Amino acid sequence: MTTVALDTGVGPLLRSWRERRRISQLELALRADSSARHISFIETGRARPSQEMVLRLAEHLEVPVRERNALLVVAGYAPHYAETPLDDPAMGALREGLDRLLQGYDPYPAFVVDGLYTVVAANDGMRRMLDGVAEHLLVPPLNAMRLTLHPEGMAPHILNLREWRADLLAQMERQIALARSVELRALYEEVAGYPVPERSRDAEGWEPPSASVPFALPLVVEHHGHVLSFVASIATFNTPMDVTVAELAIETLLPADAATAAYLRSLAG
C-alpha cells in the first residue's frame, strides 16, 4: 500500500498527526516524557528527533504502523516494522489460528481482509452468502467492498443498501484520513461511483433497521427468498509489530434474530 507524504520533513508530518488528534504540544510532551519546547523544535525542523523519539511520539499519537515506518524514513532512519507476506512460512501459526477462528464461527459468515479490503480468508458461511454474485467479482483476489457494493455483487440483495452503503463509505473515509493511501483512495472512488441498484420488489417480512435491531445498524439481506438480518463486528490485533498483521481485520456477521440463525444452520446442514 503506497502512502503519500503531504509535507516534507518529519516535523510537519508529526505536527499534522498531532493536530489531527487534537492534542496540544504540551499534552504530547507530557505523554512522551519530553518538553513542549522540544516538541516545538521538532515540528519546526529546529531539532532532529532520534529514532526512539519518533517511535515514542508516533505511539502516543496512535499513528498506524505503516505510517510509523514512513515517519522514520522521512526522518532519515530505517523502517522499524517488518512487512511479512501472509503466505510467508513465518506466518504459518497466524494463518492456522485465523483458519480455526473462521471455521469455528461457521455456519455464520466470517472473513479476513487486509488494509485494501482484499479478502485473504473466509469461511463456508461467507461463501454461501455469495450465491448470485457475478463470476468476474469472484476471481481472486476478491475485494470485500466490490463484492458488497457492486451492482452485480451483493448490492441488489441488500434490502437496506443505502444505509449500509453510507456506513461502509464513511468507514473508508475515516481509514483514508489515517492512512492517506493512494490505492485506498482509488478503491473508494471506484465503489462510491457504483450506481445504487433499484430492487424490483421489497422482500416481505422485514422491518426498518431501527425497529428490528435498535442497538446497531443491521445488514438486511435477501437470500433465496429468506430475509436475513446480521450485526457486523470487526476485530484487529492488539499491539501488532508487523505491518501486514496491523492491517488485518477479522469481520464477522452475527445473526440479529433467531430466524436468521436457524436458516444459516439449515444451509450448513
Score class of each variant (00 low, 15 high):
Met1Arg: 12
Thr2Val: 09
Leu6Pro: 02
Glu27Phe: 03
Glu27Pro: 03
Ala32Glu: 00
Ala32Lys: 00
Ala32Thr: 08
Ala32Val: 11
Ser34Leu: 12
Arg37Pro: 00
Arg37Trp: 10
His38Ile: 04
His38Met: 13
Ile42Met: 12
Ile42Lys: 03
Glu43His: 06
Thr44Ser: 15
Leu55Ser: 02
Ala58Cys: 07
Glu59Asn: 09
Glu67Thr: 06
Tyr81Gln: 01
Thr84Gly: 08
Pro85Asp: 11
Leu86Val: 05
Leu86Cys: 09
Ala90Gln: 11
Met91Asn: 08
Arg95Phe: 10
Asp99Asn: 08
Tyr105Arg: 14
Tyr108Asp: 08
Pro109His: 13
Leu116Lys: 03
Val119Asn: 01
Ala122Cys: 04
Ala122Asn: 03
Asp124Ser: 14
Arg128Ile: 07
Gly132Asn: 08
Gly132Lys: 04
Val133Asp: 08
Ala134Arg: 11
Pro140Phe: 10
Asn143Leu: 06
Asn143Asp: 07
His150Lys: 01
Met154Thr: 01
Leu159Glu: 07
Leu159Val: 11
Asn160Phe: 10
Leu161Cys: 10
Glu163Ile: 03
Glu163Asp: 14
Trp164Lys: 04
Asp167Cys: 04
Asp167Tyr: 12
Leu168Met: 12
Gln171Asp: 14
Arg174Tyr: 03
Gln175Ser: 09
Ile176Lys: 02
Ala177Val: 05
Leu187Val: 12
Glu189His: 15
Ala192Trp: 06
Val196Gly: 05
Pro208His: 05
Pro209Phe: 11
Pro209Asp: 13
Ala211Gln: 09
Ser212Phe: 12
Ser212Cys: 12
Phe215Tyr: 14
Leu217Arg: 10
Glu222His: 03
Glu222Arg: 14
His224Tyr: 01
Phe230Thr: 01
Phe237Ser: 04
Phe237His: 06
Met241Ile: 05
Leu248Phe: 09
Ala249Gln: 15
Ile250Gly: 06
Ile250Arg: 10
Leu253Ile: 05
Ala256His: 04
Thr260Pro: 01
Ala262Gly: 00
Tyr263Ala: 05
